[in-house]
Design a protein around this nucleic acid. Sequence first.
DNA 1: GATGAATGAGTTTTCATTCAT
DNA 2: CATGAATGAAAACTCATTCAT
Lengths: 199, 199, 199, 199
Amino acid sequence: MTSARPLRADAARNRRLLLAAAADEFAERGLAASVADIARRAGLGKGTLFRHFATKDDLLAAIVLDRIGELNAVGEQLLDAAEPGAALLEFLTIAADHQQQRDLSFLQEAGELNAEVTRAREQMFRTVHKLVDRAREHGDVRADVTGADVILLMCAPNHVTSYVPDAPPDLWRRYLAIIFDGLRPEGAHPLPHPSPAVP
Amino acid sequence: MTSARPLRADAARNRRLLLAAAADEFAERGLAASVADIARRAGLGKGTLFRHFATKDDLLAAIVLDRIGELNAVGEQLLDAAEPGAALLEFLTIAADHQQQRDLSFLQEAGELNAEVTRAREQMFRTVHKLVDRAREHGDVRADVTGADVILLMCAPNHVTSYVPDAPPDLWRRYLAIIFDGLRPEGAHPLPHPSPAVP
Amino acid sequence: MTSARPLRADAARNRRLLLAAAADEFAERGLAASVADIARRAGLGKGTLFRHFATKDDLLAAIVLDRIGELNAVGEQLLDAAEPGAALLEFLTIAADHQQQRDLSFLQEAGELNAEVTRAREQMFRTVHKLVDRAREHGDVRADVTGADVILLMCAPNHVTSYVPDAPPDLWRRYLAIIFDGLRPEGAHPLPHPSPAVP
Amino acid sequence: MTSARPLRADAARNRRLLLAAAADEFAERGLAASVADIARRAGLGKGTLFRHFATKDDLLAAIVLDRIGELNAVGEQLLDAAEPGAALLEFLTIAADHQQQRDLSFLQEAGELNAEVTRAREQMFRTVHKLVDRAREHGDVRADVTGADVILLMCAPNHVTSYVPDAPPDLWRRYLAIIFDGLRPEGAHPLPHPSPAVP
DNA sequence: GATGAATGAGTTTTCATTCAT
DNA sequence: CATGAATGAAAACTCATTCAT
C-alpha cells in the first residue's frame, strides 16, 4: 500500500535522510520551512526530494504518517496492560514524549493531508477510544469523559509549553499531570457541554 | 499613545473593517494569510491597508493589542470579586469566549511584535498572576499551581477544539471545565516538574 | 500662455512653496523623491500639490522652465557685452553656478517634459548659439567649435563634480576652466568628428 | 573570489544574457529599469535572474565590476607605452569607447555597491593616477592637472553626447578631443580651484 | 537516478493620482 | 478650495515545482 516494490538500498537511505531533515527543519521553522533548505540539510538535491515526495505536502504527510503509526503501535500494546488508568496515562506520556523529542507542533498546522493519513489517524483514534473506554470502565477516569475528549486533549501539554521560550524539555509533564488530574473521577464537576462526536 | 488625533469617521470605519477582516483571515489561514486577501475581504484596496498599518506585522500587533487590552480589563475588574476561585474561572471563561468569537489561535503564532505589545502582554500576565494568587490563597486552586501555569493553559480550551471540524461554538467550555478541574485542590496528584518562571 | 488669470495671493504663495520644496527634495533624492514628501516639505496637502501641478512631471517641468528662463535671460543680456569670449565664459560660469546653488543634476534625469519646456529650451539654445558665434568670430574660441558643442558641454562641470562626495561648492570652476581651455584657439588640435546638428 | 566552481554551460550562457540585457536596460532607463523587464529582455524568467544575482544591486555590481576590470587591464598595459601622453589619450579613448558600446552613464548613478566593487574601483583609479603622473612628468599634460581630475572628466565625453537624441556613435570623440585639449600644457590658463583629493 | 538551474505565480510594500470630506 | 484617505498598478523578492543535463 505504501510502496509497490521495496526501494533500492540507497534510495531508502535518501528517503530516511529526507524525512529526518524535513522533521528537523519543520520543527525549527514550522511549515514555512522551504524545500530547498530541507534538501540541503539532507545533503541532497531538490530534485531528489521531489522524486521521493511529489509535493511538499506529501513529505509532510509521510512524516505525519510515521508518527501516527508509531503512536498507534504504542496504544495497541497498552490495550493489554493490567491497569487501564495507568495504561492511558502512559499512552499520553509516550505520545507527548514523542512529540517533544522532535518539536512536532507543526504537525498541528497541517490540515487535511491525504486519504492514507486520514485512515491512519482514524485507526489511531480508535485505539485511543479503546484505551479510554477501558480506563473509564475501570473507574480510572471520570464517567463523563470520552475517547474524543482525550484525543483532543492529547496534544495540549506540548502545545502549551511551546509558548515558553527555551522550555525545559520535560515541562510538558507538568501540564499532562494537571490535565490528567482533570480527567480523574475525584473532585470532578459536571461538564457543561457534551463531547463532540467526530474524531 | 494609540493615536494623536481622532480618525476621520470613514477612516475609523475602514480601520475597523480591516482589523475585523484581518482577524477573520488570520483565523482561517493563520499568519500565512496575505494582506491582499485581507484587504479584499475588507472590501478595500491594498493601499488602504498599508496606510492604516504600515506593515503586516503592525496589523497583527494592532489585533493582538486589542485582545490583550480587553482581556486585561476583564481581569482587573475580577480582582475585586468576592470569590477568588469563581473569579478566576470567570476570567478564563471570558478569555476563551473572546477567543472563540474570533478564532485567535494565530495570536500564539505571533512571536515578538513590538514593545507596546510586549508591555501590554506583561501587564495582562501580572493580572493573571494576581488572580491565581488570590484563588490559591483562598484554597480554590491547588497549592502547587502558579500564575504561569494558568497563563499557559489559558488558550488550551480553544486550541483543543480547533481540531474539531465544525465544532459547536461552546465546545471549549467542556475542555475549560476539565482543565479547571485539574487545577482544583481536590484529588490533586503531585506535579512532576516545577512551574516555569518566564511568562 | 503660462496662466489665463493671475493666481490669488495665497495660491501664488502655495505655488512658490511647492516649487521650492520640490527643488529641494529633488536635489536631495533625485527624481525618486515622492510627491508626498514634497507636499509635506511645503507644509501642504498632496491634493493641493496636484491642484497646482496635475502631474509629478508637470511639477518638474515648472522647475525646469524656471531655470531655463533665468539662464536665457542671463544669456541675452550678455549678448551685448563688450568682450564676446569673456561673455561666453561668464555665461557658462553663471549657468554652472545656478546649477550648483541648488543641486540640479536631477534636471538632467528629466527627458522630454512638454512642449513649453521644449520651446523655452530651444530659445535658450538659440541664445547660446549667438554667444558662441560672437566669440568665435572674435577669435576667442576655436574656429571649429559650435554652439551645439557648448550646449552639450555646458553641464559637464557640475556633472563631473557630482561624483565627488562632499565636493567643495566651487569645485566645478576647476572643470569649467579646463573645458574652456579646450575651447580656446591656442593649442587646439583638429577635432575628429563633426559637430552634431540638433540642440 | 568570483566563483567557487565553474557554471554549467547553459547557466553561464544565461548569466551572460542577463548581464547584457541588464546593461541594455539600464542604459535605456537608468537604474529605474525593472528586474522583470531585464529578465524578459534576456528571454528568461525573473527567478533565473534572482538565482544568478540575489539582488538588483548585485546585478548592477556585477556589471560595474566587469567594466572596471576591463578598463583597469587596459590602463595597466598602457603604463608601459613609449609615449605617456598618447598612452593617456588612448586610455581615455578606449574607456569612452567601452562606455559607448553600451551607454554606461548609469554606472555613475550607482553609489556604494559592495566592497569588491570599491576595491576594484580604487585599483583602477590608482592606474589612472599613474598614467596621468607619467604624462605630466613627460610634459604631455599641464602641470596643474591631477589623476583625480582625469578620473572625474573621464566619463564626460559619453555623458555629454547622451543628450543628443540619435547621436552618431563616434560623437564622443569630438568632446574627448576638446577636453583633452583642455588638459594639454599649451595655452593653459591657471585653474581657479585646487584638485579634489578623493577619488 | 541525481542534480540544481529555470520558472512564474504570489508576497509584501511603495507611490502617483483620484476623490470624498 | 484644501486636505489626506483610498486606490491599484508596479516593484523587488521568494519558493514550490518542473526539467535539461
